[in-house]
């Protein structure tokens, strides 16, 4: 049998070199962001007071992850032009020429619909609606509207990344509560200092792409001030969460230690000026960015530990 398609003119030149592999489609789902989505959604689900069958819980988290990945693919489809000019994103599948924009759009839309429908079937339609809203918020509100329009893009857009624990909670309970809103707020308030620290040390990228990051529109001094203010607000919120039903002594210890370190890091960033930062190649800003990753995982990890201890009759303040 002859392989006619392979011998057709489109594949006799450069055509097949851009033919995507499975890994290229997987890369469209932003696997690293998906790790955060999976972890926080799982914590939201397990911290909820209503038990969920382990297999249903596994499927629900998988569908939430697919929904998060689908919104990542749609984000890459829309932002392909600015991804191509930023060093950090130039090797993504679309600017690298591995996947076409149309393929990414079809892939993202299909997986969005798939994830919402199957989350609804596996758990409940409230959780599915929340997932649909999250995808809409990330793709339309953040990517298409805010990202290129306002320096507050990260602040409002951060809500999209903050929804997964609420969706996990909704899978178990079928609704929203103070605790799930607090978990949402934790990620929501964490996002601005995390991204502004990144924007401080990858300076040229956002300039070149014309994305109105705070560092570009209001200056780097303003970004340093904003990091400190948001970190202080975050610390109050994170420590207050310890005294709700998802918190407890373990969470309180983790929150006190990490918030002390985080506030110290933000204060160090605030004290520095550009000349000092240039001299040591933004070491303090980079350290703060790395700490921010640990910060979020540790807080949700502590909520998870409290949930496990509660199941064993040892968690919380009682």
């Amino acid at each position: 049998m002859s392989d006619v398609s392979i011998n057709s003119p489109e594949f006799t030149g450069q055509g097949f070199e851009g033919e995507a592999q499975f890994g290229d489609f997987f890369a469209l789902l932003k696997p690293r962001v998906m790790t955060l989505v999976v972890f926080t959604a799982a914590v939201g689900l397990l911290a909820a007071p209503v038990p969920v069958h382990p297999f249903v819980a596994f499927c629900a988290i998988l569908f939430i992850a697919v929904g998060g990945g689908a919104s990542g693919a749609l984000n890459m489809w829309w932002d392909a032009d600015i991804d191509a000019v930023m060093k950090r994103t130039a090797r993504r599948p679309i600017p690298a020429g591995k996947v076409t924009g149309d393929e990414a759009l079809a892939f993202g839309l299909t997986l969005s619909a798939f994830s919402v429908v199957f989350l609804g079937l596996a758990s409940n339609w409230f959780a599915a609606g929340l997932l649909a809203f999250t995808i809409f918020f990330y793709v339309v509100i953040y990517t298409m509207w805010l990202k290129r329009w306002t320096p507050q893009n990260i602040v409002i857009g951060g809500a999209a990344g903050a929804f997964p624990p609420m969706i996990g909670w909704a899978v178990a309970t079928g609704g929203i509560s103070v605790e799930s809103v607090l978990m949402f707020c934790l990620t929501f308030m964490w996002t601005p200092p995390h991204f502004w620290a990144l924007a401080l040390f990858i300076r040229k990228d956002y300039d070149h792409a014309g994305v109105p990051m705070l560092t570009v529109t209001h200056g780097r001094r303003s970004a340093r001030n904003h990091i400190l203010v948001y970190t202080l607000l975050l610390a109050v919120l994170a420590i207050a969460t310890a005294f709700t039903s998802v918190g407890g002594p373990v969470y309180l210890v983790v929150a006190l230690v990490l918030n002390a370190l985080f506030v110290k890091g933000a204060y160090d960033i605030w004290r520095r000026d550009e000349d000092v930062s240039e001299t040591d190649n933004f070491s303090v800003e980079k350290k703060f960015f790395k700490l921010s990753l640990l910060y979020l995982f540790a807080h949700f990890g502590a909520i998870l530990i409290e949930a496990v201890l509660t199941r064993m009759g040892m968690g919380g303040w009682t």
């Binding site: 392979i6 594949f11 097949f16 070199e17 033919e19 995507a20 592999q21 499975f22 890994g23 489609f25 997987f26």
Partner: peptide, 12 residues
């Protein structure tokens, strides 16, 4: 190479 790429996609 095109076979390798397609095999990866089909297997996945």
């Amino acid at each position: 190479e095109i076979h390798t790429r397609r095999f990866s996609r089909n297997l996945g």
